[in-house]
Design a protein around this nucleic acid. Structure first.
Lengths: 233, 233
DNA sequence: AAGCCCTTTTAACCTTACATTAACAAAAAT
DNA sequence: ATTTTTGTTAATGTAAGGTTAAAAGGGCTT
């Protein structure tokens, strides 16, 4: 069994601090890629798979939140930790809204950071036992590739899916023939559960149904008040 | 619609602060049980299932860490958040070691706490893909799936059941051939026992009888003044 | 900055699903 | 006999979901 080092994307514009942090993490057995601003961070993120992203909030060109949002569009699961300059409540709240897993106030203690990282990785480890490579699905005569965000019918031309369409169909596929609770999709994809996000989700269900009706054996059923069910007859 | 509130165990020895925090959380739609020390906290924990534990670190009799360890022995999954008096690095590290999900330094901002709770619950949401076997019943020639809320006759087309129909039939099935007391259904399903809910229940019994008459071996009998009995001959 | 494309949200309107209540009939208990 | 409980059907009001279209937002190009 080959032990794979965990890969961390560190986006931090202060060069001194960035290097120090990077070295410290590498000394502790992480594989660290350091980007010096939001732009570069996103480029690097697209090129590889990371187990964790550590983002500075204050950065030129593209701040940490904007970057986080972009990262979230491509990947709803990767843990994100923010580094905020001080205890700025605004920042913290904003961070959680874009789906942060945690945040740290600068200056912070490096051991604390390490523990946080460990805790987060551990959390992921328990979750990610089964769904590690769950990006490709066969749904009746369709093939869904949720990494590349397309849907093919009978091996024909792929139709591109928007991020939300993709995530929603992926969640449904993960629960094929079973209940996919409304609340699950709303918390996982929309990160909020209110009247409007709920209506938004219904709109997406309608869109997916449109795509899926090419195969009349495939349908999305509603379970009133509970959620939806993707069935393949 | 019947909404299931998330249940929080709050263990905090400062009575004023505890009450205030409890009220604040309840205002935000959580179901909160407040324990005043570690001992009491553990007692309450054993008696019920919680979605989250919020533990003060400094407490008489039994501190938060000891309590957390005990809780972890019984339940490896429930998220734990610590409240630490100040930025005590020792505490934070120790907290993560016993498997905390997060910590908050007192005094903390209540909105921040709320966001943390939300984030933690979101994380949990994915894991909770519960197993189905306890939701399936065989009733004569019928199959009841009370998770997906349908009833099949001889493996034919499933008939959809409404939430109340479903819950009622499930309760009857749990007591198959035995008395299912009126009061039980009223308190469990209707959460209230009065003339009108009682009449409402009778209406649902009539609906269920209609579904079930496809199999003349299955019937719902009334036990006057007591309740109903689902019998399979 | 203006315009365009893509995605997402919001709004509107309509349909379906559900639970409750009323009304009256039938059984059972007193 | 009459009061209470149960059986059943139908009517009503409300909430949830289906669908389409318009508005809003963001990035990118010119």
């Amino acid at each position: 069994m080959e032990e794979q080092k965990k890969k961390i994307l560190l986006v931090e514009d202060d060069p001194n601090f960035g290097i120090i942090l990077k070295d410290y993490l590498m000394m502790n057995d992480y594989d660290v890629v350091h980007a010096k601003n939001g732009m570069e961070g996103f480029e690097k993120f697209k090129k590889d798979d990371y187990d964790l992203c550590i983002l500075d909030v204050m950065m030129p060109y593209k701040d940490g939140f904007t970057l986080a949002k972009e990262i979230r569009e491509k990947n709803t699961d990767v843990p994100i930790v923010f580094l905020t300059a001080k205890t700025m409540k605004e920042d913290v709240l904003k961070g959680y809204k874009v789906g942060a897993d945690d945040y740290l106030n600068k200056p912070f203690d490096s051991e604390v950071l390490l523990m946080k990282i460990k805790a987060i990785m551990q959390r992921k480890a328990t979750e990610t036992i089964s769904d590690s490579k769950q990006f490709e699905f066969k749904i009746g005569r369709f093939d869904l590739n949720s990494k590349l965000r397309f849907l093919k019918f009978d091996g024909g031309d792929p139709v591109k899916l928007s991020p939300k369409e993709n995530e929603l169909l992926r969640l449904l596929a993960l629960h094929e023939n079973d209940l996919m609770p409304r609340e699950l999709a709303l918390t996982k994809i929309w990160r909020d559960d209110n009247y409007f996000t709920s209506r938004s989700m219904d709109v997406y269900i309608a869109k997916l149904r449109k795509y899926l009706k090419l195969d009349e054996k495939v349908e999305i059923l509603n379970i009133h008040g509970e959620g939806f069910r993707l069935v393949v007859n």
